[in-house]
Simulated scan of single mutants.
Amino acid sequence: MSDNPSHKKREKNRGGELKDYWSLFSLILITAAAGTAITWNVQGGWLQWMHYFMGFFLCCFAMLKIFNLSAFADGFQMYDLIAKHSRAYAYIYPFIELGLGLSFLSFLAPAVTYSVTIIVMIIGTLGVVSALRKDLDINCPCMGSVLDVPLSTVTLTEDVGMGVMAVVMLTLTPGIM
């Protein structure tokens, strides 16, 4: 990978300031607010909120990737374990994410939705860890090519957080297990 000119070692201080992640944080805050708004007067509490948050989050992030599929695929192939070997997967991934988001929002097959989310997030986490260990300076494809956010521990936290929420929902949602 070191002979690939499309990425390089991380520049000093890149990703070191809160402003470097404002676009990501704003999307997270907006999806959290949307999840709160839709569950405000609905029974189900925080578990229901997580469900809607994940739905909005995945749909928003899929949309950013779909804006420019080719650019997303270029970035995704730099670190994702499957996309490195299959450009087709890099093109399909945003639609997997969109399908998961819509499944969360519609409560379609929750056990399958949670399980697929866990698998996708584990694969994503492993790819991010690998890229971070190599200290690669690449933009996080999670935001598509629309927003300039470096791949970092924030990306890792996002993948791990979504995986953990899916595990919590899988284990605590009544009637799932």
Rank of each mutant, 00 (worst) to 15 (best):
L69Y: 09
I96W: 03
H85F: 15
I92A: 14
K134T: 01
F56V: 03
G45H: 06
I119A: 15
G55F: 01
N68Y: 08
A88P: 05
P94S: 14
S86I: 09
A37P: 03
L98E: 06
N68S: 15
A37G: 15
G55W: 01
A131W: 00
Y89P: 02
W49K: 11
A83M: 08
L98F: 10
I118C: 06
G44I: 11
S26W: 06
G124Y: 00
I38Y: 09
Y91R: 07
I92W: 06
F67A: 14
V112G: 08
F56T: 00
I122T: 07
N68D: 15
Y79N: 02
G124R: 01
L29Q: 10
F95H: 11
M50D: 03
H51Y: 13
Y89H: 13
I82F: 05
Y91N: 08
T117F: 02
L27H: 11
L136W: 07
N68I: 10
I122A: 09
L64V: 12
F72R: 00
F95E: 13
P94N: 13
L98I: 06
R133G: 12
Q48S: 13
F56C: 05
M54Y: 04
S70C: 12
G75D: 04
L126Y: 07
I96C: 08
L126E: 05
C60L: 13
F76V: 07
M50L: 15
Y89E: 08
Q48M: 14
Q43C: 07
T117M: 05
G44Q: 11
F72L: 10
A111Y: 09
N41A: 10
Y93T: 07
T36P: 00
G127N: 04
V42G: 03
A109N: 09
I30C: 08
D135R: 15
F53K: 01
W46N: 13
G55V: 03
A111V: 14
Q77A: 10
A83S: 15
A37T: 13
A109P: 02
V112Y: 13
F72S: 02
S26L: 14
I82H: 02
Y93Q: 09
E97K: 03
W46G: 13
F53Q: 01
W46Y: 12
G44C: 09
L81Y: 02
Y114G: 01
C60H: 05
I122N: 05
F61P: 00
A73G: 08
M78Y: 00
I123K: 04
T113M: 04
A62E: 02
S103H: 06
A83V: 05
S86Y: 09
G45D: 11
M121T: 06
T117G: 04
V116G: 04
F104K: 00
E97Q: 15
S70Q: 15
R133N: 15
P110S: 12
F57H: 05
D80E: 12
L69P: 07
G99D: 07
D74Q: 12
L98M: 14
S115T: 15
L136C: 10
S86Q: 11
M50T: 09
A33D: 03
W40Q: 12
Y114D: 02
A83Y: 02
M63G: 14
C59G: 04
M50N: 07
Y91I: 08
A62S: 14
